[in-house]
């Protein structure tokens, strides 16, 4: 790094957020993401979509990945680029994603029959974001990458 001239208009800027695995803290991630998105120039309805997607992703990480262990962290990376905002949410859990969950579209009639009325999170994220990808975080936990494009 030293000695080199940094690029005049660097391609991306990253904000990193580490949250305790406690429900309620998804709010911090939502407000941070919306603050960034608003200032990047996203329209209000896109910002609302982003907030919902971030909320679902962080809640999943808290509940499923880290199993409510407040000492475990949820790491949220917000990467601002010229035409898009990338949000990575990683947990430190040992429980991998249920692959079935990440691709299935819940059917309201079926869900009404089940005791667990949840399971909408990942489907919602897919509906609201432009790109969604599931992977394993460098820490070994689960990671979800969500991309939202800035339409000018």
């Amino acid at each position: 790094m030293s000695g080199e001239t940094p690029p005049r208009d660097p391609v991306e800027r990253v904000i990193e957020l580490r949250l305790p695995s406690k429900l309620g803290y998804e709010r911090v991630a939502m407000d941070t993401a919306s603050s960034l998105a608003r200032r990047m120039g996203f329209q209000p309805d896109r910002v609302e979509s982003l907030k919902t997607a971030v909320s679902e992703a962080v809640t999943n990480a808290i509940e499923h990945g880290n199993e409510h262990d407040a000492a475990m962290k949820v790491v949220v990376l917000l990467t601002a680029r010229a035409g898009e905002l990338i949000v990575d949410v990683a947990d430190q859990g040992r429980k991998p994603f249920d692959h079935n969950q990440t691709i299935r579209r819940p059917v309201i009639e079926e869900v009404l029959e089940q005791d667990d009325k949840g399971g909408w999170g990942i489907w919602l994220i897919r509906e609201l974001m432009d790109e969604v990808e599931f992977s394993t975080a460098p820490s070994g936990g689960n990671q979800i990458r969500m991309v939202i494009h800035l339409e000018q």
Binding site: E12, R13, L36, R38, R39, M40, A80, R81, A82
Partner: peptide, 8 residues
């Protein structure tokens, strides 16, 4: 990426 809420 400039983040300001540019002053008008």
């Amino acid at each position: 990426m400039m983040l300001e809420d540019e002053l008008t």
